[in-house]
Design a protein around this nucleic acid. Structure first.
Lengths: 118, 118
DNA sequence: CACTATTGCCTAGACTTTCTAGGGTTGGTT
DNA sequence: AACCAACCCTAGAAAGTCTAGGCAATAGTG
């Protein structure tokens, strides 16, 4: 809060990771890059946040892992959504949407621009 | 995360409190009621979160307090925004908006409904 | 070969905020 | 008297993110 750096709000990291995996399995490093790209560099994920988050998701059965080789011959741990993971993504997406809309409402910020004229 | 209860995401409590005070000073109890009403009962603020948050805001100079009497003759601690508080509200509102839009973008959720037909 | 940058993974502990689970006083109502 | 609602407070637990390190392997450069 002291500086202007945007921190990941509690609970949204899981959501972003699940979304990152929704198209195809990916390894940690790629997940982090994806989130940055998908948010137009607005959000940045620290290693120290990401890996513990992945372990939690695995423990909860939302993702499963496999060591594989990347296109350029590096070993990497690929994470894939399980059925529970896909459901978790739906549930958490709905929860986030509900939450964010509530906050926007409280802040008096319309989600859609008011049409000009009238 | 285990149950369906909506928790207040880190950082948004301050924002909601500042917004609650943006029209007029209010006491803690009224702030909590305001947030619930303004979010259509979607968000609920616990006492144990609210009062520490108010102290932090006071310490940071964003609000100032005064003991007064309510309309029905109860004593209550009224919180009012300072100039810094008003600025804080603007800054945190912008920050939240930026953040929420980034997450929505990553989730592929359009802020405004796509026009039907076309 | 030496060197560097990038990719890729890991961990301990600090930090911060929210919640849980209590506590209390006062005023109004029955 | 008993009860409820309004109103405030606190200690400690819980949980997730960050800081700040560490390591290994590959690609590219000279």
């Amino acid at each position: 809060m002291a500086d202007l750096r945007q921190q990941i709000l509690r609970g949204t990291l899981d959501l972003l990771v699940l979304k990152a995996l929704s198209q195809a399995p990916a390894h940690g490093y790629a997940i982090a890059r994806w989130v940055e790209a998908a948010t137009d560099q607005t959000l940045h994920i620290e290693d120290g946040s990401l890996y513990p988050a992945l372990y939690r998701l695995e423990e909860r059965g939302l993702v499963e892992t496999e060591w594989r080789l990347t296109a350029d011959h590096r070993r990497a741990k690929y994470y894939a959504l399980t059925a529970a993971g896909r459901k978790g993504l739906r549930v958490e997406t709905a929860s986030w949407t509900r939450y964010a809309r509530a906050v926007f409402a409280a802040l008096d910020i319309p989600l859609q621009p008011v049409p000009a004229g009238g």
